[in-house]
Write a protein that binds this DNA or RNA. Structure first.
Lengths: 210, 210
DNA sequence: TCCTGTGAAACGGTTCACAGCC
DNA sequence: GGCTGTGAACCGTTTCACAGGA
């Protein structure tokens, strides 16, 4: 079952799932790879290839059953249950993420918030109380946290990552704009807005020859 | 000069630039591809290949002059001047971005902020007054905006993108978690936190076989 | 007939290895 | 001798095209 699956395949599955859920809501019973490709801005062959890496979910001549495929993709992505997430850094980005509805609705529940600003510590955010940074490891363990979102200034990034890893977290979403070191069995995804903007800068300064 | 340059090359250049600026600050006069690779978590061959797509910036036997290479890369990425940016959506994510120091320090200046919440319209953010959504196109034109950051709810994403494009913007950073349509001469970069989290979900639910 | 599932071909990006210049 | 610049080999991903089942 687990051969070599590329990151881009996984990201596309995530997009397919969203499209499938839209179709589900709309009550569409079945969908072809062609139709899904049209909606997702990709190709039918790509979709069939992606899915074929995990099994045969369709029916020749008919397409895919929307509800069934959605459920299969959800299972592939590990989204059947809920994930428990720690947020490190309750600054502007952290608080925006905490309130971001799409995370919770997709099963990512922020159950721990940590910050090092004494003004913020003790504050209640919904059901979560902001804890001081010293409690990071304990909170991760007692709240059975699976993933961490790191939204701290660049200079604190590495030490925060080291600490969440030492407490047993194996998946990290990182907003600190610097390459961070993690052990090979820990997964880290970087969100770097400056890199995205600079890629735009490059594209625009090319003067527009497509 | 402009052959086919991949997006990944551009993103790596952005990383190299940051490393070079660190070296510049530290007063290091020259650097080899080997050394740069070590710091950036990549390979020396990769760096030489990336740079060779744009010219020959080093000296054989010596390496690269830090200040010169930084300046070259800055020019390649179109970062010599300043970019004027419109922020559409002054909600939590929008306000976090507005205050994000790394954007301004890299030459991305938010000169227009638009929101559709009457409570927010008229509020002053630093030097920028939040404008009503009707003024979007006018503001983009009068403020000579080059790029837009779209941080609005998913259902408003497409119409906002259509409007900024019609006003002449050709580079968009999009936070709306849905695939958006733009003309072929417009560049859009999506930041989709849910996809990142779902990629982590997949990795973790694989049970840890590397 | 229609549409999936999948080997095979094509493509593009990364790594290798070395010629060439300091 | 040291390190860059680059063609060639390699490798992973995408696209093609079609066999095969509904």
């Amino acid at each position: 079952m687990s051969q070599k699956i590329s990151d881009s395949t996984i990201r596309r599955l995530s997009v397919y799932l969203r499209l499938l859920e839209d179709l589900e809501k709309a009550g569409t019973p079945t969908v072809s790879s062609e139709e899904l490709a049209r909606r997702g801005g990709t190709t039918a062959a790509q979709i069939r290839k992606d899915l074929s890496l995990f099994g045969s979910f369709g029916k020749r001549g008919l397409g895919y059953t929307v509800a069934e495929l959605a459920s299969r993709v959800r299972r592939i992505l590990g989204l059947s249950g809920a994930w428990r997430v720690a947020l490190v850094g309750a600054g502007r980005i952290g608080s925006a993420l905490f309130a971001y509805p799409n995370l919770a609705s997709r099963g990512f529940h922020i159950v721990v918030v940590v910050d090092n600003d004494p003004e913020k510590v003790g504050t209640q955010w919904g059901e979560v109380r902001i804890r001081p940074q010293e409690e990071l490891e304990d909170a991760i363990r007692s709240e059975k946290v699976d993933m961490a979102i790191v939204a701290v200034p660049v200079e604190a990034g590495q030490s925060v990552v080291d600490r969440v890893v030492s407490a047993g977290v194996r998946g990290i979403l990182n907003f600190a704009p610097t390459p961070l070191q993690v052990p090979r069995d820990v997964w880290i995804k970087d969100v770097n807005l400056v890199i995205e903007m600079e890629a735009l800068s490059y594209a625009l300064s090319q003067g527009g020859e497509d």
